[in-house]
Design a binder for these strands. Structure first.
Lengths: 212, 212
DNA sequence: AGCCAACCGTAACGTACGGTACGGTACGGT
DNA sequence: ACCGTACCGTACCGTACGTTACGGTTGGCT
């Protein structure tokens, strides 16, 4: 019972990363009915190793979600020459990125399993799957978008009192009912052109609502 | 194997309704780890009756979701004297209703179980839980809101080409990140005053975006 | 060569739970 | 009084799966 605090201490060997990739693939294919045996078979490793490395099934799922989260990294925005076009470009970029991620099989699968576990959790809300997905999903998006919004206000292109409120409105304009419909199994395609169209529309609407 | 099409043929006895209410309560308390035994105990009925009435566990869950859905009924809008105030009132009413339902424990629990099952379903997308929730959730809201939007456009108060697009924007402005955060287990309260405030804000923003 | 740690594969254990069977009871019909 | 129906409660069965244990193999180190 080593109560390690390896939450950010993700010292993963290549072998372990391969295992987590296998788990990720299985999560996409089979959802939460993923079994320890299936992961072991897919990754060609023993169950004993799975338990040694990740503790238990929950630990494996947690590590898998964190592993996927660690792959996604944001791109910072430059402060220089920030004008209206740069603001629009930044917002549209965020919107397209977000819609692409959101509608991907991996995101849907991960959100599904996180929602499932959020229902029956004993964790004291410390490090559960829902919290991790929340942290690397909406919250991460908010943190990444915040500097853009602040630069926009600084440059006199936007007007708002609370950054959080502005972000949440942008979130709503971008995501709309897409995520919940995907999570509920509505098979509707989100093609690349339609993503870019939606991103532009959401950005335009946002600028209308928050223009000075 | 009676392939009954009792989808709308919900001939439920009082006893069965009580059982479904018990199942609903358990679903809220325990989420998807609800067991047939626990339902039987809670409802003081035998498992044999559960299987006779609902076929199997999936049938029980489906019946429970449909039972809850049947309780929620929309209120039609009157065509007479439809002016700007009536439009605003209608939109705000929809928004508050929706936010209230959305943030309720029952809705969260039902959406959780539906999302969970949408991941691992063998049903040919025919009558699965995700489809039912979708049908009685976002889609029902769209159907209820549509006449309001059309009346608004008819009265020259709104301008849009596609009703569906307008609805989805309104949906985004109202719901924002509330639902996904609740589903992921983010414990943030949505008080009655804040619901009404959000409904007003969303309505105002919607009117700005879709004014002629 | 000898040793040890890490690992694979698989068998085995314990349990939770979906589903079934069966005895017992209440009740309406005949 | 007799029977059938509907139901409750509970014991039971089969299986899936999380978890553990163990024998066998590889590979690095001395």
């Amino acid at each position: 019972m080593k109560s390690e605090l390896e939450i950010s201490e993700t010292a993963l060997t290549e072998r372990q990363k391969d295992v987590l990739d296998a788990a990720l693939a299985l999560l996409v294919e089979a959802g939460d009915k993923l079994t320890m045996t299936s992961v072991a078979r897919r990754a060609s490793c023993s169950k004993e190793s799975l338990y040694k490395w990740f503790g238990d099934r929950d630990g494996l799922l947690t590590a898998t979600v964190q592993w996927q989260a660690s792959k996604v990294r944001g791109v910072p925005v430059s402060r220089d020459g920030f004008d209206r076009d740069a603001l629009i470009a930044g917002l549209e970029r965020f919107a397209t990125d977000w819609l692409r991620v959101l509608s991907g099989k991996i995101s849907v699968a991960l959100n599904r399993v996180a929602v499932t576990h959020a229902g029956t959790d004993k964790h004291g809300l410390g490090r559960d799957l829902g919290g991790i997905v929340l942290e690397n999903g909406p919250f991460a998006m908010a943190r990444r978008l915040e500097p853009v919004l602040l630069l926009g206000r600084e440059a006199g292109l936007l007007q708002f009192d609370h950054t959080d409120e502005a972000f949440r409105t942008f979130f709503g304009l971008v995501v709309r009912d897409v995520q919940i419909r995907l999570l509920l199994g509505d098979h509707f395609e989100l093609s690349e052109p339609s993503i870019e169209r939606d991103a532009k529309r959401a950005t335009e609407q946002f600028l209308v609502l928050y223009k000075p």
